[in-house]
């Protein structure tokens, strides 16, 4: 895997965890700059606040407002060290478990407090995946 084009292949690409579950998109990439050494690709960043910064001022304000209304305390940004990237293909596979990542908070909260209370939703943790 040499010659990865960061913008074409990585930025905005779908991310999946080691169990092939979708865990968001590469909303930004952090580069570590240093003198006399090539810039190092430090991490893939995922999350609303990072995305909002790329979109523009209105999105940042909206993101702040939503987080204030929802009383969100965690910073909403997942940092995936670039070393965890295992494969870059239709999606980027990272050697991590999606459960417990910051980026899954909303999904997990919705599953637990809303979706699973409706009959027929299936089991959030285990059980049959397909209908």
């Amino acid at each position: 895997m040499s010659g990865v084009a960061l913008i074409h292949d990585v930025l905005d690409a779908q991310l999946v965890d080691r169990r092939q579950r979708k865990i968001g998109r590469a909303d930004s990439i952090a580069l570590a700059l240093s003198d006399n050494a090539p810039p190092r690709v430090a991490a893939i960043l995922v999350g609303g606040p990072v995305r909002a910064q790329r979109i523009g001022r209105w999105a940042v304000l909206l993101s702040h407002a939503l987080r204030a209304v929802g009383r969100v305390r965690h910073n909403g940004v997942t940092r995936i060290p670039f070393g965890a990237v295992r494969r870059i293909a239709e999606a980027i596979e990272v050697d991590m478990d999606g459960d417990g990542l910051e980026v899954k908070h909303v999904e997990d909260w919705l599953a637990e407090h809303v979706i699973c209370r409706i009959p027929g939703a299936g089991d959030e943790r285990d059980g049959e995946e397909r209908k």
């Binding site: 579950r21 998109r25 995922v46 999904e107 599953a111 089991d123 959030e124 059980g127 995946e129 209908k131």
Partner: peptide
């Protein structure tokens, strides 16, 4: 936004 999606998955997933 890269969420999990499929009409064939159980809603909990």
């Amino acid at each position: 936004f890269g969420w999990e999606w499929s009409e064939n998955l159980k809603p909990a997933k």
